[in-house]
Design a protein around this nucleic acid. Structure first.
Lengths: 339, 339
DNA sequence: CTGAAAGCGCTTACAG
DNA sequence: CTGAAAGCGCTTACAG
């Protein structure tokens, strides 16, 4: 069975390519093509398993019905879950999604943006490394539809969807303070990303609210690629140092789980001796020993908001300016913070 | 800044489109285009931010440099991790990956295959619902490059990469038996998927090896979409029934974590009263209370093997027949099985 | 209602 | 070394 093309159908059925194209795109009626002809064409297409070439179609129409999704890492729970929501919503609207991971590498991210543009995606969704000013400016200048999520460029006027990282960390730190913990460490990542900056701020402001002086030795800013190694030093210093802490705030789920692993190894009782809380979570955090108190991100809302904004942009419904959405997080109190 | 095309470069530089195309595709030297001209073209392209249209390129060359990945659910850890590996490897070889989730819906899977074909992907990777004989046959007939993973069609002669589900479950069940557990329940999914069938077999054969009669009441085959609800009944029946078990084998990570949640709720001590083990794991299973003994799948190897086979197929290096790879699993003994 | 034709933006023999 | 031209497989005014 050889491949069949539009022209084959047209020839075999003694109609024009135009007619075939129109009918197969559901424009038969509005172009007043006889029911009989339409029937004939549709049946033939089905019978011979006609597969329209989207490349040709896209080229001709200047639209690919594809959305590009660039995230730090598809294997990370948070991103894979958001990706799931985005994909589902995109599909519902007739779009396929092309995804790629930047692995936090700005150059790679730049290349990915280029590559997506090459492929004529109709729009772009990016959880950025925040170090590609140039590309973002380019997209803006070209008025190319895109929306940032999770990490945006606060200084730039773009569409974005983020959660309130400041508020989340602040709430959770204050929760520890309310429980009487006074010496609270923070294990977070090296500066560079807006959410991380916000989480640091939230922690600091919570302490300030309770009139507790900030102890620089209580804050560890870890290199992401080296976190397994560096977090060990951080924990040891916080727990076994001269002035041991009684609680730790972890700014990501992987820092929290690794931190807990190490605390267990050191036989530090959690939460009795050291209470811990995490920004973001893993799906088993509720059955961990002890269950980890976490700041929960509204995954579904994030994905839906992103797609909504993007599709409106693509379809030109809302060209008036840009839209920034900041979503609330939710505190999930579990045992690790000492309730 | 308006968009620039091949023809613009050619015109502005007073060379032919051919020359521009050749140079930009790195074929300048082999076509003996003067260094000077090449330089000129490359600079111009960079300066004006020339973005070649991959749709046009693909259409013209009959190759899209894209791979389609169809999985049950991108949000599931296992698939998102394999997807990560596949994406990385694909990228290294110049391919972008188009991904879509079937959500275990055969019709949807069929549509996705069609859609990917429409988009002229060069090859397809599928973790199938195993209910699309027709599509698979079609791909085979067309000699379209594709490889199945995780779930394949045992009766069909295709390329595939799976793990030894039978062996994994058997090993882990025997481990329980060796520890003296005799009344071992199985909580698994309704039949339909090859891995699930194999896991059931492994469990049964392990019991047989130890001369233990199979008790039908100990096996619960759960409807996936209803698992939260159904597993509750299963656990209650196994644990609180007239003939309570002393161990449970869970055939997936989400069944295991949900099962443990329920056992905790019922105040059943694990592993003292009931030992549990899981096929596959979540990343926090080692810090869960108690840490869950699991059969680990070689994620990285799965992804690499899949890509290897597919790329060979696409590039026509190995047309001779099909290749089936069965990878070994690893037992990770933790506390939940009573060691 | 229908058909011939131009065009989408590339690549690639082919002739010089 | 280079250019004109055909072709990839569609869509879509436009003329009838």
């Amino acid at each position: 069975m050889k491949k069949v093309y539009l022209k084959d159908i047209a020839k075999d059925l003694n109609v024009s390519k135009t007619a075939v194209s129109l009918v197969l795109n559901g424009k038969g009626n509005e172009n007043k093509i006889s029911q009989e002809t339409q029937q004939k064409i549709i049946e033939y297409a089905k019978k011979h398993n006609y597969i329209p070439n989207q490349l040709a179609r896209g080229l001709s129409r200047g639209k690919s019905e594809t959305i590009g999704l660039i995230i730090p890492n598809i294997s990370d729970t948070f991103y894979s879950k958001v990706a799931g929501v985005i994909e589902r919503k995109a599909k519902e609207n007739g779009y396929t999604v092309l995804f790629s991971s930047s692995y936090e590498n700005p150059e790679k991210e730049g290349e990915l943006i280029q590559s997506m543009l090459n492929r004529q995606v109709d729009g772009l969704i990016i959880a950025s490394t925040q170090q590609n000013q140039k590309e973002i400016d380019f997209l803006k200048k070209e008025k190319f539809p895109f929306v940032l999520f999770d990490r945006h460029y606060p200084s730039k006027n773009t569409d974005y969807v983020v959660v309130d990282n400041y508020d989340g960390t602040r709430k959770i730190t204050e929760h520890l303070l309310n429980l009487g913990r006074k010496k609270i460490g923070l294990i977070t990542l090296k500066p560079g990303l807006e959410p991380i900056a916000q989480r640091l701020l939230g922690y600091k402001d919570a302490l300030a609210t309770f009139n507790i002086d900030l102890d620089k030795d209580y804050i560890f800013e870890i290199e992401r690629e080296e976190y397994i190694h560096e977090i060990e030093k951080a924990i040891q210093s916080l727990v076994l140092g001269k002035n041991p802490i009684d609680a730790i705030v972890f700014s990501t789920h992987y820092l929290a789980s690794q931190g807990l692993r190490l605390l267990k190894k050191l036989n530090i009782s959690v939460p009795e001796k050291v209470a811990i809380v995490s920004f973001d979570e893993l799906s088993a955090f509720d059955i961990v020993d002890p269950p980890i108190t976490s700041v929960i991100q509204p995954i579904n809302k994030i994905g839906c908001s992103v797609i909504d904004i993007l599709l409106n942009k693509i379809e030109g419904i809302s060209e008036q300016g840009t839209k920034g959405i900041v979503l609330e997080t939710k505190l999930e109190i579990r045992q690790s913070c000492g309730q």
